[in-house]
């Protein structure tokens, strides 16, 4: 199995976990953290592996990862303070 195939399966598994969490009716703050954590891992796989930004010279990887972290962090803040 290629590394990309493993990463694809990891993305599918994390998606299934996200949908499963929603169906299981886990308490909202726990679900929020778990769903956002799964999203962060999925995003990192896409950025580092699929986009191949890991190991790229310059700030590109950190700009895109920073975007993901900032957006997910502020989403968490907004949902916690709703």
């Amino acid at each position: 199995m290629t590394a990309a195939t493993f990463q694809w399966l990891a993305l599918l598994t994390l998606t299934a976990l996200t949908v499963g969490l929603a169906k299981a009716g886990v308490s909202s703050s726990t679900a929020l953290i778990l769903v956002l954590l799964a999203t962060l891992i999925k995003g990192r796989i896409v950025i580092d592996r699929f986009m191949a930004l890991q190991g790229v010279s310059g700030p590109w990887r950190w700009i895109v990862l920073g975007w993901l972290l900032l957006v997910l962090g502020l989403i968490a803040f907004a949902f916690q303070h709703a």
Binding site: T18, A31, L32, V35, T39, V46, M51, I75, F79
Partner: peptide, 23 residues
Amino acid sequence: GAAYWHMVDLVWIVLFPLIYILN
């Protein structure tokens, strides 16, 4: 072309839980 397509995927990866899942 690949980089653009992955961006479209990345955006959906955030959009899906935000709109469909989180409540």
